[in-house]
Design a binder for these strands. Structure first.
Lengths: 246, 246
DNA sequence: TCCTTCCCGTTGCCGTGGCAACGAAGTTGC
DNA sequence: GCAACTTCGTTGCCACGGCAACGGGAAGGA
């Protein structure tokens, strides 16, 4: 990961519903360009670029950081000792990540931590030091705003985790897939959309087998519910998809 | 739910690791009794008692509230149109709940919201109004502390959701059960413990069938991994349980 | 005490989906 | 253009677990 030029991140409005869409970051919402520039020095915000499959942030890092994705896509993954990993969440531009990582990693830096954020594509991030944010001696006009935004960002992330739990509640694979496609369609606001996951990654996200996902997708296409090719999906019978996800 | 006498809630230390244990609340950590009393008026903190199966908090409420459980046990549930519900999380004394409920419920108060906190046993709660907390005209010495504590509480809750996702990653029911028992054992700090869930509730938490859970528990007992009777569990072969949860 | 109700254990059935293996198609590098 | 590699689709096998039904035991109320 290499340092990258730091430029003004356009904060738009601050409506939580808009968070996650490209061009908006809930964490820096409501900041003027002047305040943002101030924050970069006061709060030690730095920009970095990363490559695909590169580890963007890990528990084993020198110290915990908050990150905001500027461009590209990231995966919030959990790696297990036996080699396989689960995909907890997809991180898109504007999203916060790395929140809540306790500095317990300090204790055992030699153990490769099981939690990490890796690059799904190449991209850039902003990293900021939570210690600077909670340090009372740091007086910055932007700090209060960022602090409030941070709470909203964390709540937004929690909402995403609850959405994933909602997807995972289905006992049938068809229900999980239908729910995922419905959520993804609503997020994009279209019935035709492309997903940021490959088949194998989708299986990891749905906690299922890749072959089984392919098989069930083929069945759903055969039943006329959906259509797809690679990462491009279309909801043919939206009502049927909604019914399948109960 | 009826109003209940409001008394000083003993805040202990503020170490996140202690949060969730009886007698400590991360949200009010670091407050003196004087500050706590001040906060009750400034932030509009009120105490209520609730009964078993009573709805403690729901999205359809007049306005969003944060809650802290004082005594008893609560369930963070998600109710689905077809009647069944999933158990998202168990709320124990000191835990925050109701965070992040958007006031979108205002828009459609007639629809029974799918998300709620219900009483698993009778108990008491403290409710506070987030609007008062974010209102800049309210000047209270305790506000800053509570605001910081709120962020930590939300992060702590997120950690619990991630733990549940970790339990749910297992494709086999035995893996999920083993992981749950391991987590519960670590939380209690003992290899003998009682769980706050009935069989049916445990099945709802694990996103599985009640009969299947009973069957798999019987197999694990037969294999010498665990022992149990009703809600009382004991890890016989802790190594085997750990292996089953990978 | 008796009755009702709820919760838990058990079991047979069988469908869903995990697993492994293979082939096709797309991608990258030389 | 060819080869090595990766990703996706497909399929057979069969075990795990969902579902339904039943029975027993504990709990609560009259």
């Amino acid at each position: 990961m290499r340092a990258a030029p730091l430029q003004f991140w356009p904060p738009t409005g601050g409506r939580q519903a808009q968070a996650g869409s490209a061009g908006a970051s809930l964490l820096f919402a409501g900041l003027s360009e002047e305040q943002f520039t101030c924050a970069t020095s006061c709060l030690g915000i730095q920009a970095f670029s990363f490559e695909k499959d590169e580890q963007v942030l890990a528990c084993q890092g020198a110290r915990p950081h908050y990150g905001v994705l500027v461009s590209g896509t990231g995966f919030d993954v959990r790696q297990h000792p036996n080699g396989d990993q689960t995909l907890v969440d997809v991180i898109e531009p504007g999203d916060l990540f790395g929140e809540g990582w306790q500095p317990r990693a300090w204790a055992a830096p030699e153990v490769p931590r099981e939690r990490a954020v890796i690059g799904a594509t190449a991209g850039t991030v902003l990293l900021l030091d939570p210690a600077r944010l909670s340090d009372p001696t740091v007086a910055c006009p932007a700090k209060a705003i960022v602090h409030t935004n941070l709470l909203n960002s964390v709540l937004h992330k929690q909402e995403r985790l609850r959405t994933k739990l909602e997807i995972l509640r289905h006992r049938s694979l068809r229900g999980r897939i239908a729910n995922y496609l419905l959520v993804e369609s609503q997020r994009r606001g279209k019935s035709q959309f492309t997903i940021p996951l490959s088949r194998g990654e989708l299986a990891q996200y749905l906690h299922a087998d890749r072959a089984a996902v392919s098989r069930e997708l083929a069945r759903m296409k055969h039943d006329g519910m959906i259509d797809y090719h690679r990462n491009a999906f279309a909801l043919r019978d939206e009502q049927a998809v909604a019914t399948a996800s109960e």
